[in-house]
């Protein structure tokens, strides 16, 4: 007991608090080593290898996929679906966030919990659930919609729905905390000065939640671009028509075109990593 008492010897509270956290024992270095090693073997090295495998033959593999019209179509399709999905999720997400934070209505807590469902539902179940309702042959609404000339499953509409489903909570999860943080004094002030609801939203609310929306959009974009399981089920995976970039990766790999698989994966990984870096560079400016 006596010798443990000697060790910390805090004199002044302010400096002592820092001293305790700054002081590095062997345990600190050990933990740091364990964490760095773990992340190196689980994430850093594998991701690096995909880049290395892509450029094994210089730019040949990348050039090959970028000149193949079917793959270019798949890349275009992925980007198009991702953009449409992100727009839908942003409008829906901002609306729901404002309703959840600023208004009260029956069933709000229930809705709040339900909105997280898509995060923990398997992509395969998402695909299945959409097929069961919108499938053209024996879905609940599918045959009726098809008799109106509206095909959803095995068409772009279903692929957008699947993508929207899996990325649904991302914008909401970013915007809600920001809305709660900023409070509504400014909105009330604006309203008391005669601004209508739309003006208040555009001039006051929107600028203050701007960063939350941007993070949400970037994360949703990354997620939407890479959705695999759900899209595989609802798209029918037809080359040149409904095959997206992540589906190309699988198909190329299984057909022993590893170069093509790695090159396509590299492009997708590039977007994902870029999104993460964008968010991590932007975020501290706002938070601290």
């Amino acid at each position: 007991m006596a010798d443990t008492l000697v060790k910390p010897a805090p004199v002044k509270k302010a400096s002592a608090g820092k001293a305790w956290t700054r002081k590095r024992g062997p345990v600190t270095y050990l933990i740091r080593l364990v964490v760095v090693t773990y992340l190196f073997f689980l994430v850093a090295w594998p991701v690096y290898l995909v880049g290395q495998n892509t450029f094994k033959k210089g730019f040949d593999d990348l050039r090959a996929i970028l000149t193949d019209p079917d793959i270019v179509h798949a890349l275009h399709l992925s980007v198009e679906i991702a953009i449409i999905s992100v727009i839908i999720n942003t409008v829906f997400g901002v609306t729901i966030s404002i309703l959840l934070v600023r208004y009260r209505f029956p069933g709000k807590r229930f809705l709040n919990a339900l909105l997280d469902v898509p995060l923990s539902v398997s992509p395969v179940v998402v695909g299945l659930s959409l097929v069961l309702v919108y499938g053209g042959r024996n879905g609940w609404f599918g045959p009726t919609l098809e008799s109106w000339g509206l095909q959803i499953i095995f068409a772009e509409a279903g692929m957008v729905m699947a993508t929207v489903f899996v990325a649904l909570p991302l914008v909401i999860r970013e915007v809600v905390p920001v809305l709660e943080e900023v409070g509504e004094e400014q909105e009330q002030a604006a309203r008391s000065l005669g601004a209508n609801a739309w003006q208040t939203f555009r001039r006051i609310t929107l600028p203050s939640i701007k960063w939350g929306i941007i993070y949400g959009v970037v994360l949703s974009l990354a997620r939407s671009l890479g959705e695999f399981g759900a899209v595989k089920i609802v798209s029918g995976n037809v080359l040149g028509l409904t095959r997206t970039a992540p589906l190309v990766v699988e198909e190329k790999y299984l057909n022993f075109d590893k170069g093509g698989a790695y090159a396509t994966a590299f492009l997708l990984a590039l977007v994902a990593v870029a999104s993460i870096i964008v968010v991590s560079v932007l975020r501290p400016k706002e938070d601290r």
């Binding site: 991701v47 995909v50 890479g226 959705e227 695999f228 992540p246 698989a261 990984a269 994902a272």
Partner: peptide
């Protein structure tokens, strides 16, 4: 490290499989 921790969240799952397969 911050970026590394977030990569699995943003990386398409099929790419994640390929990434692990390469090591």
């Amino acid at each position: 490290l911050e970026v590394l921790v977030d990569i699995p969240f943003a990386l398409p799952t099929i790419v994640a499989g390929l990434v692990l397969l390469s090591l």
